[in-house]
């Protein structure tokens, strides 16, 4: 089935960019600098509080018109919109997980004379990431489903080709959409499996 490469490439790119955003924004939320903290908080609330479709349309239609910025291909716009949106959600997971690492861990690392950077890198993050993994998996599945929205900015993903098939023969609608569901489900299966694995890993090696 054609279009699957678009769906997968958008998913992979927006997942990588989204996780990156999540870490950057999550760490910024914990910054001691109040301006960085507030600015990041604003970004997170705006992107969590508004609809992904509208954000997609903003980036694709409104931003180039208002500011005369070309964000590049519709592929890139789709990736950026999904990454910014899910990055905002996931940054709260990053922040929460870091805060959830027991205070005694920071103190023990301080007692060993580690710098704040070493504490974060060697002690806090390795434990926090274990806590993040299951939630990250859940959001990856959601991102997979969100990729179908790039159809609306004219990309030829699997939903687009499904709609073409249906318009060739309207009576095929149930079959076509059933196939689409199966496709998304098959794509989600490895992610679901990964999430299960992640849950097992995350149960090991975290301070209670």
């Amino acid at each position: 089935m054609r279009g699957i490469n678009i769906t997968i490439s958008v998913l992979i790119a927006s997942a990588i960019l989204g996780y990156l955003m999540a870490f950057v924004a999550g760490l910024c939320r914990l910054s001691s600098n109040i301006i960085i903290r507030k600015a990041t908080g604003f970004y997170i609330e705006v992107f969590r509080g508004t609809s992904l479709i509208v954000q997609l349309f903003w980036l694709y239609y409104a931003v180039p018109m208002l500011f005369d910025i070309q964000l590049g291909s519709n592929w890139l716009v789709g990736v950026i919109a999904i990454a910014l949106n899910y990055g905002a959600y996931m940054s709260e997971i990053v922040r929460g997980s870091i805060l959830a690492v027991a205070k005694g861990q920071t103190e023990a690392a301080t007692a060993l004379n580690m710098s704040s950077f070493q504490r974060m890198r060697l002690i806090i993050l390795p434990q926090a990431v274990r806590m993040m993994l299951p939630e990250f998996g859940n959001y990856l599945i959601q991102m997979l489903k969100a990729t179908s929205l790039v159809y609306l900015i004219g990309m030829n993903d699997i939903l687009y080709y499904g709609n073409i098939l249906r318009s060739n023969d309207l009576s095929q609608a149930p079959t076509v959409y059933l196939l689409l569901l199966v496709f998304y489900f098959i794509l989600a299966l490895p992610i679901i499996w990964l999430t299960r694995k992640a849950e097992v890993i995350s149960k090991k090696g975290v301070a209670s």
């Binding site: 027991a102 023990a108 690392a109 007692a111 060993l112 004379n113 434990q127 274990r130 090696g205």
Partner: peptide, 19 residues
């Protein structure tokens, strides 16, 4: 960091690194 390098501590609740 320069000054506290001479000091070590053992905690009531161990605080070992679980990972």
């Amino acid at each position: 960091r320069q000054v506290r390098g001479d000091i070590g501590m053992v905690f009531q609740h161990f605080n070992l690194f679980p990972h």
